[in-house]
Nucleic acid binder design. Structure first.
Lengths: 352, 352
DNA sequence: TCGATTTGTGAAATGGGTTTCATTATGGCT
DNA sequence: AGCCATAATGAAACCCATTTCACAAATCGA
């Protein structure tokens, strides 16, 4: 069954393809009877114009590439969901590019993440996407290898690229990010307001911008309150539930333990909750815990997590809007910052 | 900055575009020096062939459409992750099509889901995808409106469509699904093996195939053990944590309450856990809970969920492999069934 | 009534590749 | 030396739309 083309329609309607195109796109007046004849044929054959051919001449595809590290990390679906909503409204379809995903042994493949980002960048260019959104991976690095940044800048000359929730230092790449430092301050100030003085931080990766900024927020809030930051209570390098459990267990072992833990994300907080439970420590009565991100799972735990909402969906939506403007050639601010909000639930309480 | 094309390369290399194309695709022998000259130019200009143009002639795009209801439901990222891994290996890129996603008010839009499926189907056709994977939505309906099925069959004539984890009745559409009935039997037999006789089921939607099949598994396991199914202990219409909490609360109110609850998914089970906690009932000592799906969150709760693993990632991988074969025109079984496994963790114990 | 617009339409060029067909050069073999 | 298979390459057609340009017909304004 050959697919029907504008030529088939044109022939049967006794017009030229130009006219068919005109009714398809409403780009010029067409006599009423002619139009009706053509429309009827389009219906009859369920004709759909070939988007490839169309894009080829129009030089726009209406597609975006969305590069993220790991869709099974619940933070990203949140962002993506907001992005999806807005992108669809604006008429875009998008390629999802997961730079980690899972192999046959259900292992996540972190090792060649940056390499895969490069591959996708290149692939997306070939596919002629109108723009690219990137989150995580190299975008999060505080000191990325120069070639990683350079490559991005090179690509950005050819197609609009928008970086989400991260910041390659010293570049002129467009970004929309949550204000991580502010978010951390919110969380820590909340704890301090509850009377906590012995506050630990866990999680994150020291080489990541986000982590550094949240840590900076933690430090500034502590300093402002005249509280010391104890080195042994700052445990980094990890973002998973398992790591959270491990870090918290370590903190809770000694008798001289913190009364509150600020976690770099909700997954860690969930792990901390487990560790506390295992150690027979009651949350929030004996220990307060604050998460970060406000993923849906933050409300699944018992007790529900107090956390910092990045308003992930809003970030996704803003990304779509901004990228659309960039594609249209409109000016957009180089950097857009979104303010996180504290969501107080059940894991924080007055200091014991 | 005009993008460079094969013509540019050809001109500068003093060859015809045909030759350039030949070195690009290795489709015919090219003299060594000529090849080197061309390769050098490709490097020099960082030339990338335009995938649109290529696909236009080749009549294949190397892209797949993946339609799912809601990426923020953690079950789908699992499936997608497996699919992503395998699809990438096979050389495909994919459009992600979320038929629900979230609007400005962070509400999920369930109302026009089927309409949106239709829109996406049509859009994907225009974009000339090589194949389509569909999960959830109408695929889950036990009695879909005839036009929903018909539309799908119509599209399936033009492009390979693979249905995941569902079954439109009476159609000749390809499917790969977990054996839902078997999974439910596994769960319930486990409970019965622990001595439970008073077992309730919660969740699912009665109009969905999956729910019906799991319910059938529940019934058959109960029947086999000579246990009665109490109508008031079968609570359906819902799949969320909130619903799980509500259903469980209802079950646990009376003094004559079940000793075990089989939940139609893990989200419900997490909700049930919360309800039990609120009611001061200890899990698993006083109440056993079994979930379904084995999403990552099943290990986040305290205690960790005993659940039925659908091996979601494997389903995703199998989907990619199968669709690839369909695209290649190879024969594939109309229906592939995958066997779930029981994962025993901490929410089930001997009957009190 | 006549020039100026506007309407309506087609032929042909265009976008950027791949592929077929034809042709010449080259190497291997008897 | 003669023949055939293979290597190497180019011209042109093709994929399927959109768009430009040109032109005829219809409408408008003074």
């Amino acid at each position: 069954m050959r697919t029907v083309t504008v030529y088939d329609i044109a022939r049967e309607a006794n017009v030229s393809v130009a006219t068919v195109s005109r009714v398809l796109n409403n780009t010029a007046p067409v006599k009423k009877e002619t139009r009706e004849r053509i429309v009827a044929l389009i219906r009859k054959y369920q004709f759909q114009p070939n988007a490839l051919a169309r894009s080829l001449t129009r030089k726009e595809t209406g597609t975006i590439g969305f590069i993220l590290p790991d869709i099974t990390n619940p933070f990203f679906p949140e962002v993506l969901s907001g992005f999806d909503y807005e992108a669809r409204k604006l008429g875009y379809t998008y390629f999802l590019c997961d730079t980690i995903s899972t192999n046959e042994e259900n292992e996540r493949l972190y090792d060649r993440q940056y390499e895969r980002e490069s591959q996708y960048l290149s692939l997306l260019m070939e596919k002629q996407v109108d723009g690219i959104v990137m989150i995580g991976g190299r975008v999060d690095l505080a000191k990325p290898a120069p070639e990683l940044t350079q490559e991005l800048e090179e690509f950005a000359k050819r197609v609009p690229i928008l970086l989400l929730n991260g910041s390659l230092p010293k570049t002129k790449l467009n970004r929309v990010s949550a204000d991580q430092k502010f978010g951390a301050e919110l969380a820590v100030q909340h704890l301090i307001g509850l009377g906590h003085r012995d506050i630990a931080v866990i999680g994150g990766y020291s080489k990541m911008t986000n982590t550094q900024q949240r840590l900076a927020g933690f430090r500034s809030a502590m300093k402002e309150a005249g509280l010391p930051v104890r080195k042994e209570w700052v445990l980094t390098e990890g973002f998973s539930v398992a790591k959270g459990e491990e870090f918290a267990a370590q903190l809770l072992r000694g008798k001289n333990r913190p009364t509150a833990i600020f976690c770099m994300n909700d997954l860690l907080a969930i792990g901390a909750l487990k560790a506390a439970h295992r150690a027979g420590i009651e949350v929030p009565k004996q220990l307060s815990i604050v998460g970060y991100d406000d993923i849906p799972q933050a409300t699944y735990s018992i007790p529900e997590l107090t956390t910092v909402s990045l308003m992930s969906q809003e970030i996704g939506r803003q990304a779509a809007r901004t990228l659309d403007k960039m594609i249209a050639g409109k000016k957009v601010p180089l950097f857009q910052s979104m303010m996180p909000e504290l969501v107080i639930r059940e894991t924080t309480a007055q200091v014991p």
